[in-house]
Design a protein around this nucleic acid. Structure first.
Lengths: 232, 232
DNA sequence: GTCAATACTTTGTAACGACAAACTGCGTAT
DNA sequence: ATACGCAGTTTGTCGTTACAAAGTATTGAC
């Protein structure tokens, strides 16, 4: 584990435990470095890390202040499945449809691949406990990862990607809303015309290869997106 | 302008112009530094900057590759007003209500201030062109910034904050959806029960002071949120 | 011909030093 | 008493050097 990360972790613990209160100024980096027996660049890097996570704020000529005692989790590339696991809501997935087919124009342009390229097109219903929560459509290029019904029933899509060495790195999401169609309402156990949250996303890996296109609808009565941002 | 930033800008231009194509590897940092006559840390910092913006990807032992020719704008703390200006959609704001009042419990807990602290509570209707687009409720602590109707009619809230030296730095947003009430529908020129996108946000400045709490509803038929993320 | 060990390339981490820029606050002069 | 300037503090930038770690390619042995 890198030194700068160890330093950052120690600082973070002190702040989370409240030993350095909100608003308090932390030691200046020169002294801190000397006291911990590391160099100033290493200390700077540790502090910078916490600044990026929204815990600290630095001002030239003034010092470094604690602005928030908890880590403000950055916007994460996590899947609904991961979110539910983390929230103890017992996800279950029903694979309604799975087929290998040529990419439609919409899918092809979202994934930036040639129309007609083979993709796995899946339709899944995600439950939280006993209640349906989301209806999810995804396209995954066949040469990225072949998928089976059993895999998808037991694991989240992102978990499967990661397990095969595919790490989503960059994504663009569009979040909107609309009313449920009769079919959607029936599937999701909502009334016709109920509000649904819609999310479409394309995710790329570190090599710039498109991994996944998704078009999901969530029951607005049961789900919302939480986003933490910090701007430079 | 810092040296590392100049280097980053030069690299970015080369990539945007396509002189370094997607997938191509850029010169290794040692050579690049020597050729440009700067130190390796400076070069590293420039490259790091572009990596964080999603243009480049680095792999130890391999090199640095271009993954996207355009800058992927990070998630931004911008207001709807700014977005509309950028999109040439001629925003206009109607201030429906403005009053100085003690913070309600909801507002106080969102802003992390004592209940009863005086805040300016405003209700605004935002138009894009001739059409209503969003109904916005905001609370701004009185000691952060006193506001007048005229200010708000002519400028976006974030513009006013910035103009007074208040820079939002960190925010948490929750995006959801629900059906319009009769009153909301009438105000927004939608049918009763139409889907609305809801967004509640609290924004803090660099000093950790809460600047603003907002609870907005958007016409889902006319607006959606676009979010670009990159995960480390 | 195939496999494994080795050498090479490239990025990652860490150290030290020097100066610049921004902000604070004290002290002095008017 | 107020205002201005200067000194001190703290972070920001930039340079240099050295070694570590990871991935790639080459070479050698069997």
């Amino acid at each position: 584990m890198p030194l700068y990360f160890q330093v950052a972790t120690r600082l973070q613990e002190l702040i989370e435990k409240g030993e350095i209160g909100v608003g308090a100024r932390i030691e200046n980096e020169v002294d801190l470095a000397e006291r911990l027996g590391v160099s100033r660049p290493t200390t700077r890097r540790a502090i910078q890390y916490l600044v990026e996570r929204g815990m600290l704020v630095r001002k030239r000529g003034v010092g470094t202040q604690v602005v928030h005692p908890k880590v403000r989790r950055p916007v994460e590339l996590s899947s609904l499945y991961d979110d539910l696991i983390a929230g103890d809501r017992a996800p279950r997935t029903e694979v309604l449809h799975l087929e290998v087919m040529p990419a439609t124009d919409t899918v092809a342009s979202a994934l930036e691949i040639a129309p007609g390229t083979l993709v796995t097109w899946i339709e899944r219903l995600r439950y939280a406990g006993a209640e349906p929560l989301a209806l999810m459509h995804n396209a995954i290029p066949l040469d990225v990862l072949p998928l089976t019904r059993d895999d998808l029933a037991a694991h989240g899509l992102y978990e499967l990607l990661r397990r095969n060495g595919l790490t989503p790195r960059i994504a663009t999401q569009v979040i909107g809303a609309r009313s449920a169609s009769a079919a959607e309402a029936k599937t999701l156990d909502e009334k016709r015309g109920a509000s649904l949250l819609t999310m479409t996303r394309t995710a790329w890996d570190a090599g710039g290869r498109a991994l996944e296109y998704g078009s999901h609808v969530y029951r607005a009565s049961r789900y919302s997106f939480e986003i933490n941002l910090s701007a430079g």
